[in-house]
Each structure stands twice: as C-alpha cells, then as structure tokens.
Design a protein around this nucleic acid. Structure first.
Length: 954
RNA sequence: GGGCGCGUAGCUCAGCGGGAGAGCACCUCGUUGACAUCGAGGGGGUCACAGGUUCGAUCCCUGUCGCGCCCA
C-alpha cells in the first residue's frame, strides 16, 4: 500500500537499511562470480572533510554508473575509502588542542600527538562516510580503506623503496616552496598564485672602484626588485646580453649596499630589458628564477632567512664569508627580524644612504600556501623528490595511444601540457601525520632505505662495521638493542606527501602488495570520475604509479566533470558565504531530488550553477512518479507472470510499449556515453510527458470501464511500464524507486539487483558477452538469456495515438484562446473525415470527449457554418460555437495561421528554386523539403476554405 | 604572455550544418475519476558582434568585444 504523501526522509533511511542488510553493494557476489567486473575507485575524501557539493556531484555520477552496471549484471566493485590528508588533519587536531587549552603538538611530542590524531580519526573520521551513505552511494562499504591503514602503508613503503632503488626517488638540495607558518615544504601544486598590490623598489648598487654618489648615475647601476629584504643574499646583478645600456658594465662588479659584498654584473637572458630598470638583482637562495641563473653562472647561494621567515644572519657562515669589518653589526641588528619587518627596515636604511632611487606601485603574483594562506618562501633545503619527468613518459604515451581516454577529450590537452613540463615532485613534508619516510641515516649522514627498520639498520651497521667506524661487537649490540643505537642511526623524521599514497589508490586498495587476487580481478578499474582540479594532483600521479607498478593504466577512461558553483557562477567558498550544503538540500527535498538535479545539470564541459529551485522542481518530479504509482495501485494494476509487452493487442498499449523501448534506448545510450544530462532529460520526459500526461489519461476510460480482455491487458501494461520506469530511474533516484518497487508488487528481490531493461539492438549474444568473462552461461542472471524484441516498435500505434494527442491538444488550445471555461462542453464535428479517422474517433470517443471537454463527436462532409476550424493531421476538426465565439477573433486567428503557412511555402520555395540546393543537398533533405511544401500547401488550402466559410457565416 | 572554455527566452542551461528547445519565473483559466509538490493554455529569442567557407551557419573557420578558469 502506497502512502498518500511522498516523504523522502522516511524512505531514505529505510531503503539504506534494506540495502545494507541485503549486502546489495558487495562486490564478488557468488552468483556473479563469472560476471565481468566493473570497478570504480572513489576519489577518497579527506577524513577531516564533510560533504560539499563537489562530493555530491562526483559521487552521484559514480553511483549512477555503478547502479547502472550492477543492474546490467556486472560484478560491481565501487571501492570506498578516505584520505589521511596530512596537513589538513594535523591542523584540525592542533586547532582542537589549542581550543581546549591543552599542550601543543611540540610539547606533547610525536608519539603522543599521533595517538591524538588517531583518536580524533576514530571519533570524527566517519562523518563523511555517513554523508556519502545518505546520498545513496552504493559503495562496497565492507571494503572501506584508509590511506594510513596497515595494508596501504605497506604499499607506500614498498613503492618508496622500489622507486628509490630504481633511482626514481632521490634526495636533493634545491629550492622548495617553504611554508613559514606550517614549517614544511609543499609541492608546486599546493601553491596558489595570488595577485598582490605591492611595490617595485629601484635600488642603486654602487659600482666597484667608483665613489658612489646618488646624483651621479655613472657611479651605480639601478636594479628593480619586489623583494628588497632578500638583497642581503644577492650574489650578482644580471642584465640582458642584448641590452646596450649596460653592455660595458658586464664583467664589472658592484658593492652590495649595506652589506659590502662584492658581486659581479653578468649577462643573462633572464633579465628583461623592458621590466624595471633592465637590471635585476640575483638572489639564488630566495628566488626560483635566480636559482637557475645562479646555477648557470656558478654563483654562491646565500640563504638569509630561517624556517619561520626571519632573517638569520648571526653565525650564518655563507652570509658572513668575505664581508668587510663592521658588517657583523648590521647582522646583529637585523638578526631574527621577520621578513616583512625586515623589508621596511632595509628599505629605510637604503634610503638613508641614498641607495633608494624610487618606489613604483606594482601589482604582481605572490605565491601563497593553499592551506596556511601565508606567503610561501622559496627556501633552500634537503628534500626527497620523485623523478616525475621520467615517470611521466609512459603516462603521456598511454593517453597518446588511447590506452586511457579523457571524457570530454579536451582535458587531454591540459594533461599533456602539464606532464610535458613536469618538475621534480617534492614528496617530503615536515609533518608528523603521514607515512614516515623509510630512510635511516648514519652518523656521517649516509642514507639507508629499506622496507623495515630491521633491514635498514642491518645494512647500516654492516656498512659501518666494514668501514671500521664501529667494531663488529658494537654492531651486534646495536642491532639487538634500539636504545644502544640511538643517536648513531636515526630515522628520517619527515613524512610523505599525502598524494603519494593517493597515487597508489587504484591498486593499494585492492590488497597490493600483500594479496593480489583482487588486483587480478579488478585492476585496471573501468572509469575514474573526478573534477578537473585534481587532474594534476591525482590523476596524473595514479597514471605514473599504475603504469610503473601494475604495468598497465589504472583506468581506460577518465570522466572529468564540472565544478559546482553558486547560482551566480561564483566558486562556493566559506569566506564568501555562498556555500550550498548538500545535506540541507537532502533534508529539504530528499537525496533523490538532489541527485537528479546534479545529473540533469552535468552537461559535459560546463560548470554547474546550482539553484535550489531546480532541486525543488525535481522533488516535484519524484512526487509525480509517486502519485502515478498510487494511481496504478488504486486501479489494481498488476503484472501477470507471463506478460509479454510486445504481444499486446490494444493500440494504446502497443504505443506505450513502443515509447518505453525508445526511452530505454535513449537512457541506456546516454549513460554509456557519460551524457548524464541527456539520460536524465530522457527519463524525465518519458515519465511525465508520456506516461503520466498521456498514457495514464488515455487509459482511464478503459480502466474505469467494463471487465474484459482490453481492460486486463491495460491493467498489466500500466504495471509493466511502471516497472520499466522504476528500473530506468533507479540509478538516478535509487531511494524512491526502491521503495515503490517494494510496495507496488510482490517482488523476488530488490530493485537494486534487478536486471536493466535490454537496450534496443543488443542481441542476447552481446548481452552475454558484456556481462561475462567466460563461457559459463549457467551462472548468468536468467534475464540476460531471455528477453528479445527490446527494440519493439509500432509506427501504426504511434500514428493513431499521435492523432489523438494532436486533436486533443488543438481543441484545448483553441478553447483556451476563446476563453471557454472547462465547464462548457462543446460539440466536435469531424469534416470530410477518412474512414480511418472515423474509426479512430469512435475508438477514442470517451477519451477525446473527456480530455477535450466535448459534448459529443459527430461527422459531416463539410464543417458547419460559423465554427472554429482546426487542422489536425491534414483534416478539419470543427467546433460549432456559433454565439460563443467572436468571429472577428477567429478571423484573426485564421489569418495568422494563413500567414504562417504562406511563409513556410515561401521559405521552402526559395530553397527548392535554388538549383545549387537541389544539386548539392543530400537527397533525403530535398525530399523532406518537398514534403514540407506539400503539407504547407494543403494547410493553406484548408485555411482559405475555413476563411471562406467564416465569411459566409458572418 | 601561453592554454582551455563560455556569451542562445527574464533566470539557469540544453542543442550544434538543413523548420529555435527545456526547467524555473511570468500571464490567463481550472476543486475534471493519482497528483494544487497538480492540470490546461499562453506570451517571450536579429542564438554577443563582424567577416569567411557552404546550395544552406545558432552550429564550422577567422577576427573583435565581454566574461570565467588554469598555467607562467
């Protein structure tokens, strides 16, 4: 029994429980042992996260694919899990400690702190998983993984060690993006370039051997810089080799103001003559470009900042080397001053001595940390790197060859662009929460990388015994007792970039390296669904790791979906306050409505501007379906076991079978092509504008009428089409369809595991091929071996019902125009009707009268005088409304129609009169135009007749 | 500076070589046998602009203008 009102919240909790209890989402179901797998790995959300619109869209689309393929008989594995999100999670827990006024991370110590993070994860890490369940995500939750669980951690270590052995992971000292707030290195991708209004400072650097005077340009060279405070670390001045202004200065030296260091003026292409003064200061330790210039010219690298972005000058050997006496005083004064305060101090000091020429306002891009929000400092440190350039090559080739395809295809360009210019990937992070790098150091800094501490220590001790740094006895001692080797062998403190573990996700979650059975079965996955913002972060890296370790791409298809924005097109962000919370929408309208909205708006290649009004509209759609099912139930519609829709005899029933087949084809093909919006539009139109608006309405007289073959067939057909609708709609609106499936009939099983309607044109052989890996047909779901005629089509039924629809529509339209209230029943006269039309009119008499508000239907050779005359499929239908209608208005209406017909004829004639058109256009197009002309000419004739009669009546 | 994409009905968006579409909003009418979370009907668009290709362009090409995103 269907409830009177559709209540999403109640249905959703019950259906979720039902699926859970049935283990409906489990991969590897015994009865599908021989079915072809369909595998998708979820983009693992951060454990710290909560569901936002991007997740809602991403997971709705994945769920549509998974439910669709599950219904098509595949063994679906949708692999869920979460990501440990190093920086984000560590920040969350640290903030919590602060709020509770507990000891901070450093006071607490590493071990204790990590315990706290795990504790936090246990308490709060399940939030987003539960939110995904509310959305209806049909993941195999029994296989949920976490990037820091034991198995995945083993995968991380193994990958690190193997890549290190292969020379693809190495340690290097170079400039990194340093976050002075979080005190860690971050990768290029975690840096956001932000436009900042700053200044360009023009500084005078005195030439060596000349007495500096601010008024004498011959005694100095002007350099322009956006970062005056780094001048303390300058080791050269560069000018463009083609810049004639400075040609004679190349090779000479300047004396660095305030500092007194003698540094060369050199020629390098990097210096842009158009920018600033054309001369640029070179600070290799504090600027990426300068670093490269420095390498080319063998310049020293003088770092003048510490980890926190404060000047570090006292005891700074690099800085103090070769400086004149007295410079130590400046070092003392500026030591430990923050970089931004230092900027002011240094500029003021330069100005005092006449070294500041001028200040020019300058807007430029400044790197910021995407987590901390502070200005990133290029900083010279030792870090671990992946040789991304080498690993990118197979990943590039795989997309070039089509082994992996992007949908839509244009994202491949973005992918290539980045991959072909890829920089070494800095993977070490100075954090605690993450996979600690499996590297150990000896007293001389020599590194030992191994999968276990035991192995690394063994190697190290062996080495130092051999080198006679320690005796064999000491070595044995240290091997036995960790306390004894403390201070001698130490483990690398750093952890790996979170994306390092995410890169392994498609195979680490399947059990690699411990158990490869599932890797065998489910790798490579079938499709990756994700947003374009993580193509670089994640997709590219999975490609590299997958190809290297699995020797195969992780997925043949990458579907890239849009970003969800607010209704004005702005990116949703907390600071803007324009975030629409998907959970609120679920509360208000139900998960099904939200899902359908997102699918309907997921057109390829465009961002989604979401308005909640749209969600409301699709909630109404759910209500419509609900009520249609209630209607079927109230009329006792039920599907007999042996019912075959294609064998129906009633025209109306053959018509809905035909329309259902069409909808099935459209929905199936659209999902197959990742055209979610087309699929949604198709099922929407079918349910509302075909099934509800016409089929149920046209069936009413039969259903209310006397018992008999026609009625029993219709009772069955209403139920049959309803069931097909529930199946087609299930991937989009799983909750309401599952509920209706359960309450509308006694079922063998859940809808979620019911077979998808066979697409037209798919032979049973192909269906078998699709769903199986082997020839063992005995284990197939029986439906895949039966059911033919899925491409059922009946043009005759289409023509007849089409006529009824057109007739009713035309009458309704003219009645509304003439302001005839529904209470007024009018007669209808079919003039000069063909035998076929007479038959049809008799067959559909009840329906037409009811829907068009008619008193009766009669026939005549000619339309009566003073009637409204309508053209329906080439014949005249007249409404004798003498006295009711305004003859003047009717004339105006007919004049308008006439003008339209004449315009149509004129346009077609222009085409057909064009020799080139007739010669060049495809035959069927020309034929079509001719038919259009004929129809328009016939229409025109009838309208003229109608006008004549109107004149007579007046 | 390089790349990608977008300018179609009041709004949000489909369509993309042969007669301009949907949803919402708007206007009119309606307690018609499931549904007012509804039904019926209606108005509304030089498809940004300018060239070109073509028998034919909203659709392809070029340019201009406006907007967005990514990378330097």
């Amino acid at each position: 029994m269907i409830e009177k009102n559709y209540q999403p919240a109640d249905i959703e909790t019950r259906m979720a429980r039902l699926w859970e209890e049935a283990g409906a989402f489990k991969a590897g179901r015994p009865e599908r042992r021989d079915a072809r797998p369909f595998t998708v790995v979820i983009p693992p959300p951060n454990v710290t996260g909560s569901l936002h619109m991007g997740h809602a869209l991403n997971n709705t689309l994945q769920d549509i694919l998974c439910r669709f393929e599950r219904m098509r008989g595949r063994d679906v594995l949708w692999q869920p899990g979460t990501d440990h999100a190093g920086i984000a999670t560590q920040m969350v827990v640290e903030r919590q400690l602060m709020e509770r006024q507990e000891p901070g991370r450093r006071e607490m110590g590493r071990t204790k702190f990590l315990e706290r993070v795990w504790q936090w994860k246990a308490e709060s890490g399940g939030v987003i998983v539960n939110q995904l369940k509310r959305l209806g995500a049909s993941c195999d939750w029994s296989r949920e993984r976490f990037t820091m669980d034991e198995g995945l951690s083993r995968a991380v270590v193994k990958v690190f060690v193997e890549l290190h052995r292969a020379g693809l992971i190495y340690k290097d000292k170079r400039l990194v993006n340093w976050d002075p707030k979080l005190l860690t290195a971050i990768s290029d991708l975690e840096v956001q370039q932000v436009e900042v209004r700053g200044n360009l400072w023009y500084l005078r650097y005195p030439l060596e051997g000349k007495a500096f005077h601010p008024d004498d340009p011959a005694t100095f060279i002007v350099v322009a810089t956006t970062r005056p405070e780094t001048m303390l670390g300058d080791t050269a001045v560069a000018v463009n080799p083609d810049d004639e202004r400075y040609a004679d200065l190349v090779g000479k030296y300047v004396i660095l103001p305030l500092v007194g260091r003698k540094i060369p003026i050199l020629a390098d292409e990097y210096s842009d003559p158009e920018k600033g003064s054309g001369a640029v200061k070179i600070t290799p330790a504090h600027d990426f470009n300068d670093f490269e210039v420095g390498r080319r010219h063998n310049l020293p690298q003088i770092s003048v900042l510490d980890q926190e972005g404060c000047l570090a000058l006292v005891d700074n050997e690099d800085y103090l080397r070769d400086l004149p006496e007295g410079s130590a005083q400046l070092a003392e004064e500026l030591h430990n001053v923050d970089r931004f305060a230092a900027r002011k101090l240094i500029v003021a000091r330069l100005e005092d001595f006449g070294f500041l020429e001028r200040i020019e306002p300058n807007t430029h891009m400044v790197p910021h940390g995407d987590r901390s929000g502070v200005v990133i400092e290029p900083y010279l440190t030792d870090q671990w790197y992946v040789d991304a350039h080498t690993m990118a090559q197979p990943a590039i080739a795989a997309v070039r060859s089509g082994a992996t395809n992007f949908v839509p295809k244009n994202w491949e360009k973005t992918y290539f662009e980045w991959m072909e210019n890829i920089q070494p990937w800095c993977i070490s992070r100075q954090l605690w929460w993450g996979h600690q790098i499996p590297a150990w150091y000896g007293p001389d800094g020599k590194v030992f990388v191994a999968e276990t501490e035991e192995e690394a220590v063994g190697n190290a001790l062996g080495y130092y015994v051999e080198q006679e740094v320690i005796t064999p006895d000491q070595g044995a001692e240290m091997a036995r007792d960790p306390d004894r080797r403390e201070g001698f062998i130490t483990r690398d403190e750093d952890v790996l970039d979170t994306w390092f573990s995410s890169a392994l996700w498609p195979f680490s979650t399947l059990g690699w390296p411990d158990d490869e059975a599932d890797v065998e079965r489910y790798y490579p996955t079938d499709v990756l669904v994700t947003g374009f913002d993580i193509i670089f972060f994640w997709v590219a890296r999975m490609m590299m790791m997958g190809l290297h370790f699995m020797k195969d791409v992780p997925f043949p298809t990458v579907y890239i979906h849009a970003l969800v924005r607010d209704e004005k097109g702005a990116k949703m962000s907390k600071s803007k306050g324009n975030v629409i919370d998907p959970l609120h929408l679920i509360d208000d309208y139900g998960a099904d409505a939200l899902r359908f909205t997102l699918a309907a708006m997921a057109a390829q290649g465009r961002d989604i501007k979401l308005a909640s009004q749209r969600v409301e509209g699709y909630r109404n759609f759910a209500t419509k379906l609900w009520n249609a099912c209630r209607f079927a139930e109230m009329n006792g519609c039920a599907l007999p076991a042996d019912f075959d829709a294609t064998q129906a005899t009633q025209t109306l029933n053959r018509w809905i079978a035909h329309e259902t087949a069409r909808a099935t084809r459209e929905v199936t093909e659209a999902i197959e092509a990742y055209r979610f919006n087309d699929a949604a539009a198709s099922i929407y139109r079918f349910v509302w504008n075909v099934y509800c608006d016409w089929y149920l309405e046209l069936a009413k007289p039969v259903l209310m009428g006397e018992e008999g073959a026609a009625k029993s067939e219709t009772l069955a057909m209403v139920a049959w089409a309803r069931d097909e609708i529930l199946k087609l709609l299930h991937p989009f609106m799983p909750f309401i369809t599952e509920e209706l499936w359960a309450v509308t009939a006694k079922r063998d099983g859940l809808l979620v595991l019911t077979e998808w309607p066979r697409k037209a044109g798919l032979s049973s052989d192909e269906a078998v091929m699709m769903a199986t890996t082997g020839p063992n047909e005995g284990l197939l779901p029986p439906v895949l071996l039966a059911l033919d005629n899925a491409d059922f089509s009946d043009p005759a039924a289409e023509a007849e019902i089409g006529w009824v629809v057109d007739l009713v529509t035309a009458i309704r339209s003219v009645r509304a125009e003439m302001n005839i209230t529904p209470a007024t029943l009018t007669p209808l006269v079919l003039a000069g009707a063909s035998a076929e039309t007479r038959d049809r009119a008799q067959r559909w008499n009840d329906v037409i009268r009811r829907m068009a508000r008619l008193a009766d239907i009669s026939f005549a050779d000619r339309p009566p005088e003073g009637a409204v005359q309508l053209l329906v499929r080439g014949e005249v239908a007249a409404l004798p409304l003498k006295g009711v209608i305004d003859l003047g208005a009717e004339k105006t209406r007919l004049d308008k129609e006439l003008a339209k017909a004449e315009a149509d004829i004129k346009r077609v004639d222009a085409k057909l009169g064009n020799e080139k058109f007739v010669a060049n256009a495809p035959e069927e197009i020309v034929e079509e135009e001719k038919e259009k002309r004929e129809a328009a000419v016939a229409r025109k004739a009838k309208i003229i007749e109608a006008l004549e009669r109107l004149k007579n009546a007046a």
